[in-house]
C-alpha cells in the first residue's frame, strides 16, 4: 500500500477521524472545508501528532501510537506542497528550490526539475514577485528536489485561474506518470478528482 492512514485527533471541540488505505498512484482526500483534510496531511508530514492510530507510507511506518513510533518531520521524506506555498521570502527562487536538495537520496536533478516545471526564467527572482501559478510551480519543484518518497499536495489547484489550473493539473499528471512517486492531494472540488483520475477518499462525512 502507498498510503495507510488510521488516525484520530481532537482539535478543540471537533474530532478528526479517518481510516483509509490507497495504492493508487494519485489519491485525493475530498471533503468540505473545515473537515480536517489539511490536518491529516500535517499528521502524515509529522507537523502535528495524532492522538491515536498509525500512519505508514510505502511500507514504512511513520507514526504508530501503539509502538510509540513518531518520526521527526525531517526524516519522513515527505514532499509537502503547501496551499500557501511557504516559499522562503529571504531566498531567491534558486535557493528555495535547492533548500532540501542536500539531504541525499535525491532521485531527480536540478536541471530536470527546472525543465519539467518551466521555472528557468524565475531562478533569480524573489518569491514575493511571483504570481500564484509561478509560486505553485516553485513549491512543487522544491518538494521534488528534496528527494521525497511521497508527495502531499494541499489544494494545489484551488487558488488558480482556469488557465493556470489546467497547466498545474497537467503538471501533476506528468509527475504521476513520469516520476512514479505516490501523490496524496487534498481538494474540496469533486471535478478535480475526476479530472485528475484520482482515487477518491471522503473525509468528514
Amino acid at each position: 500500500m502507498s498510503f495507510e492512514v488510521r488516525v484520530t485527533k481532537a482539535l478543540g471541540d471537533a474530532e478528526i477521524a479517518t481510516d483509509f488505505a490507497s495504492d493508487a498512484p494519485l489519491t485525493a482526500l475530498v471533503g468540505r472545508s473545515g473537515a480536517g483534510k489539511t490536518s491529516i496531511l500535517n499528521m502524515i508530514a509529522g507537523l502535528s501528532r495524532p492522538d491515536r492510530g498509525r500512519i505508514a507510507v510505502a511500507g514504512e511506518t511513520l507514526f504508530d501510537a501503539a509502538t510509540r513510533i513518531n518520526l521527526a518531520p525531517e526524516t519522513r521524506r515527505a514532499g509537502y506542497v503547501f496551499q500557501d506555498h511557504r516559499l522562503f521570502p529571504h531566498k531567491r527562487v534558486r535557493a528555495n528550490l535547492l533548500y532540501g536538495a542536500g539531504r541525499g537520496g535525491g532521485w531527480i536533478g536540478f536541471d530536470d526539475v527546472v525543465a519539467l516545471l518551466g521555472v528557468g526564467r524565475l531562478l533569480d527572482r524573489w518569491p514575493r514577485t511571483l504570481s500564484g501559478g509561478e509560486a505553485q510551480r516553485v513549491a512543487i519543484g522544491r518538494a521534488l528536489l528534496s528527494g521525497p518518497r511521497f508527495l502531499l499536495m494541499d489544494e494545489p489547484l484551488s487558488a488558480l485561474d482556469n488557465a493556470r489550473r489546467d497547466e498545474i493539473g497537467a503538471l501533476i499528471l506528468r509527475i504521476r506518470d513520469a516520476l512514479r512517486v505516490p501523490i496524496l492531494l487534498v481538494t474540496h472540488d469533486e471535478r478535480e478528482v475526476e479530472r485528475l483520475g484520482a482515487a477518491r477518499i471522503a473525509i468528514g462525512d
Binding site: 509529522g46 525531517e74 519522513r76 521524506r77 503547501f82 511557504r86 522562503f88 542536500g102 528534496s146
Partner: peptide, 14 residues
Amino acid sequence: DRRLESAARTLGAG
C-alpha cells in the same frame, strides 16, 4: 512565520 519553519522541517532540515 512559523509555517515557514515547518516547511523547512518537511524539506529535511532539523
